[in-house]
Amino acid sequence: MKKILFILLFIPCTLIFSQSADDIVRKVDENSTYKSYRAEGKVVVEGSYGKRTSEFIAYAKGVDNSLIEFISGEEEGQKIFKTSDDLYIKYPYAEDIQRLSRKKTLGAVSYDEMSGERDTLKNYKTKLLGRETIDGRDVYKIELIAKTSKVAHYKQELFVDSENFVVLKVLYYSKSGKLTKEMVTKEVKKIGDKFIGTRSLITDKLKANNSTESILFSIELDIPLDDKIFSLDELAW
């Protein structure tokens, strides 16, 4: 009898927790979705060959369309165009556009992570693990467990700022429970009424000295952008 009571007490508890975890993830997605934006910034990639820096301009419209254009560095002239399903790359010395399929990219970074709110909750089970403090900020710790085999990371731990719903840290785990990657948001700025991460560092935990840091210098939100920017035609131009 005692046991049953315990179980009865336990069930609503988990329900509340998991609901709010879903809510938090939804809020994170809402917070990082804009009608449109244009941002300038740079990436600093560190690898076995040392560091390299490339500057870029990024455009996005809605959840699905984004375009990154590199203006200096090793990637100079390269354009990356992402729709909800595909990723296209135009290299400066290539005449045709390269399409990266999911298969090719799987295992490195999760493709669906950038696809907006629908997929996060569709592909992952969420669970609130508790609250912690990172750099003086109060955060929710949320666990995401993959529901399908189509995603790159079996498990992720999200650390979400409890006030502005910016993801401050993500830990990526493999199936065997090994920490593979870490993403840290190093700088958050308030632009208009939104809080935006403007500096992030992704470190590969399996390889020494392997990291990618991105810094945004300037951000314009909800500005009118021509649809033509987000077309293969424009990419090939």
Binding site: S32, S66, Q78, I89, I202, S214, L216
Partner: peptide
């Protein structure tokens, strides 16, 4: 925002 851009870049 910066996270998404970084992810796209990494994939590419």
């Amino acid at each position: 925002m910066v996270r998404k851009i970084t992810l796209i870049f990494l994939i590419a």
